[in-house]
Design a protein around this nucleic acid. Structure first.
Lengths: 354, 354
DNA sequence: CTGATGTGCTTTAACGATAAAGCAGGGCTG
DNA sequence: CAGCCCTGCTTTATCGTTAAAGCACATCAG
């Protein structure tokens, strides 16, 4: 084992070069396997670098190459409340794994309280701390997303942004998915009187899921017996949506929640009122980021491949950074229905244990 | 509103200086409010900088100042399985908030599969991409933690590392906490025949919690009727621990799980066997990162202030980076017992809705 | 009226890496 | 054997920022 010096002073390329007896330039060329350097020198330089534990200074490289060697994962602060921990972790995992393969650092930028007038993530980009950014959703009303995506900097958005047709996005088909799970309640479980609890309607996801629900009930001719209530993706909103129905709860036999958190809140409210799920009311959620699997009964939901979305988005981002211009502007990944107990598909307590 | 140029070319200090008619040096001094620059020039430089949307190049700054302006949050890959998403998100939130206040970027480094011989996070530090690191726990057997903390680089560990007395740590008192919650089962709920399911015993946390459990049962004179089973913090381990007891399940009236995930798994197993919780068996968990609140019955647990731990650790890290040498080596934050249904404290269904 | 002290900038140099251009010496071609 | 092209390095310059030193010019004390 080579003894790695514990000195505070970092090892620079110059140190490596001096040990071999060449200039720093030669060492640089040797390490990049230039054809203009003799095999013998290359070997010596590589050996010296390994022995000294040389690691190039990222700052010097970034400055010289005009490339940070890092990408940013931008999380508008509003997101924290709207999306759950698990969603973000899946995204982070996906981004990290691709970035790791490319020897690129991942910088996480929460928007914080834009103290400097400039949004925190705009500073990140302008200071060239990152070569590009993955933006994980945001409110439709967030002007920063548009500014970022039109700034000319490489940006890939995770989600759907129909109002930003020029942006590059990777998402799922919320309309089709919500429509499919609604049809499941109607066709498989014979539910005819449905309520839909939406997410915050300044989020595209919420708008699309509502549209999917409406398409399904319209197609089935159940418009008269169905209705929509606005929520905000929080557990409490789900609880409120059910609670505020009062006696009208008996007018419905199925609830399509726009996400799992609200479904859980709704489930609690239904249970509190002594109603059985799925017996009296069948419910479904959306996301499948963990929670829906754990409840009693477990919640039937749409599984969103968050990690895959992030992975695809990050690969696309690297393409853009590398100057690839002919990639797809908008990609849509498939989702799957995960059938559990809350719709009546899987008997309670019959959950498999691996 | 100043029109921010959308050019691909970034604005440098030279651009700002030229517009005012001074050199880049003068502009630099003006922006740093040097006393050697006239008030008039300062005003003009500041105006020009704002107008052009000047943001200093982080790479150039890092190179010149020998400071990255970033800290790393290091997550050994083994951690992913051992700690949950919520724990990590709390830590990330805590680290981010403090870093944001200091205008510092947060770099998330998962260890990945040390492809380059050098652990990924060692590269991060050696390349000077970050000025310091927060390391979120790790197995006792992980040699990298020791190397990192002894490398002379600023590192703060979150958790307890008694075998690294020279490191700087911020943690909780696992022994006292597990002892307290065990005593709760004994003293408040009169349980006398207890099982403890540990986490992976190559983690200090698991070792300490086991010690706390043993201290409590010893103190109460219940050693004969109690025992310890090894788990690994996974939901499945909790399930297995209960399941593999067979008929011996009737020999116990309380289970102290070393974390909430296992408690949930155990809860499922108990329910599957038709046993009532807390009626037949009272159970408690540890962590309170979300899951334990959601189960039926909800799980009594120890609330770990993960975000606060991260915040304190990050503040300490900045102190070290800034050269403060007289800070506390080891800090311990207080935890609290969160009493819910699974121990018998709160009647089922009586959970408040805010 | 001269040397000391300020004021307000400019010049210089450095951080570390690396393309591009420069240059010495050997080998080859015509 | 003069001219040319390789080979294998060195020299030079640059990325953007900033500390330190330098240098005019003004002001003031003695």
């Amino acid at each position: 084992m080579a003894k790695v010096p514990t000195e505070r002073q970092a090892i620079t390329l110059r140190d490596v070069a001096e040990r071999v007896g060449v200039t720093a330039s030669a060492a640089s060329m040797a390490l990049s396997d230039s054809s203009r350097i003799s095999e013998k020198t290359k070997t010596m330089v590589r050996a010296a670098a390994a022995e000294l534990g040389y690691v190039p200074s990222s700052a010097a490289r970034a400055l010289r190459n005009q490339r940070a060697g890092a990408i940013a994962l931008i999380v508008p602060n509003t997101t924290r409340h709207v999306f759950g921990h698990s969603y973000f972790m899946h995204v982070l995992t996906g981004v990290s794994s691709v970035a790791n393969d490319r020897d690129t650092q991942v910088l996480v930028s929460t928007n914080s309280d834009e103290a400097n007038g400039l949004a925190a993530y705009e500073r990140v980009m302008r200071s060239k701390s990152a070569d590009g950014a993955i933006v994980t959703s945001a409110a439709v009303t967030d002007p920063n997303v548009e500014r970022l995506s039109q700034s000319g900097l490489p940006v890939v958005l995770v989600g759907n942004f129909p109002y930003l047709p020029d942006s590059v996005t990777v998402g799922i088909d919320d309309v089709a998915a919500e429509s499919a799970i609604t049809r499941h309640l109607i066709e498989v479980h014979g539910r005819t009187r449905l309520m839909h609890v939406t997410g915050p309607l300044d989020h595209q996801t919420s708008i699309d899921r509502r549209e999917g629900f409406l398409a399904a009930v319209t197609e089935a001719g159940l418009v008269e017996s169905s209705f929509v209530v606005e929520g905000d993706f929080s557990e409490d909103a789900g609880w409120q949506a059910v609670q505020s129905l009062g006696d009208r709860i008996h007018d419905i036999d199925g609830i399509v929640f726009a996400n799992d958190d609200m479904a859980f809140g709704g489930l609690e409210a239904l249970t509190d009122q002594g109603l059985s799920v799925p017996g009296d009311v069948a419910i479904v959620g959306f996301d499948d980021f963990g929670l829906s699997r754990l409840t009693t009964p477990s919640i039937t939901t749409v599984s969103v491949p968050a990690e895959d979305l992030a992975r695809v988005a990050t690969e696309r981002l690297f393409d853009i950074i590398d100057g690839v211009t002919d990639g797809p502007a908008h990609q849509t990944l498939p989702v799957s229905l995960t059938l559990r107990s809350s719709c009546g598909c899987v008997p309670e307590g019959a959950q498999a244990h691996r």
